[in-house]
């Protein structure tokens, strides 16, 4: 495992574009901390991020993991190009000839995905902990370390998303097309669901009985990944009080739900196993 990781990390680290992207990625995680500096004043409504409750334990775990996961696109570019490059350079073939098995080749990529996700999770953990200790109103141990499930969800979400990228890159073999396809897929999940729901099945937006068709959408790869960590904003007290005054009630489960964990795990297995199958069947 260590051998496979050092091989893959050498490939990534010596590539200038990948190196710059990974540095930008980890720096941008630090930018999260700068949210604490946001302040604006509308006269009737004064907002100071540091005092607004964003950084209260345990809410901060939910908030930072949600925001930080947007940055994963940087790493996705690295993952896609590290696979696509092997095809364009012809080095996949050379690696195999040099004595790497197809399984080892795939594992070296997958271990790298896990390493990236793990380091990213640790980063977010560290940054949140520091921000929280500085600004949180509650600093009891038991409160600080509650709701850790968000960190696990963050980790899993990244592993799954990168496995998706790995699988598509292996299938398509070109980085630009793969990245384009991921975007199209993202649109496709939503558009496809809308067409199926409103056009084909003839539901209207007012219909209440749409659980089945909505579940189909929830089970799709990107949707299930995004469902792992729900948006945290409406959970804040001041947002709740605003929405209460305008008469809207928000009734939502903000926790990490085991069913989504199971779906996302299943997709990860499917992506990796299918990748292996494709690699094995293909003549290079």
């Amino acid at each position: 495992m260590k051998r496979l990781l050092t091989i893959e990390l050498q490939k990534i680290w010596l590539n200038k574009a990948s190196r710059v992207l990974s540095i930008i990625y980890f720096l941008s995680l630090f930018l999260l901390a700068s949210i604490a500096l946001i302040e604006f004043d509308f006269g009737f409504f004064k907002f100071e991020a540091a005092k607004s409750g964003f950084f209260n334990f345990p809410y901060i775990w939910h908030f930072t993991t949600f925001v930080a996961s947007w940055f994963k696109l940087f790493l996705a570019v690295i993952i896609v190009s590290m696979v696509a490059n092997e095809f364009s350079y012809g080095t996949l073939k050379q690696n195999l000839i040099d004595g790497m098995s197809k399984k080892e080749f795939l594992l070296s990529k997958f271990y790298t995905i896990i390493l990236f996700s793990l380091v990213s999770t640790l980063f977010v953990f560290g940054i949140s902990l520091i921000l929280g200790l500085k600004y949180s109103s509650y600093t009891e141990m038991s409160i600080i370390f509650s709701d850790m499930s968000y960190l696990f969800a963050y980790f899993l979400k990244h592993v799954a998303f990168f496995s998706f990228c790995l699988f598509l890159a292996l299938l398509i073999k070109r980085s630009a097309f793969t990245l384009g396809f991921i975007f199209v897929w993202f649109l496709g999940e939503n558009v496809g669901h809308a067409i199926l729901k409103y056009k084909i099945l003839g539901y209207t937006p007012k219909d209440k009985n749409t659980e089945v068709i909505d579940w189909v959408k929830d089970a799709l790869p990107l949707e299930s990944m995004s469902n792992l960590i729900t948006e945290p904003f409406t959970r804040l007290n001041f947002v709740k009080s605003v929405s209460n005054t305008v008469g809207a009630t928000i009734d939502k489960n903000y926790q990490v739900q085991p069913i989504f964990v199971a779906i996302v795990l299943a997709w990860t297995f499917i992506f990796i196993l299918t990748s292996y199958y494709i690699l094995k069947k293909r003549d290079l």
Binding site: L14, N15, K16, G90, T91, K93, Q94
Partner: peptide, 9 residues
Amino acid sequence: IERPNFYPY
């Protein structure tokens, strides 16, 4: 085999 395949960077 065929052309030399290495990492150009």
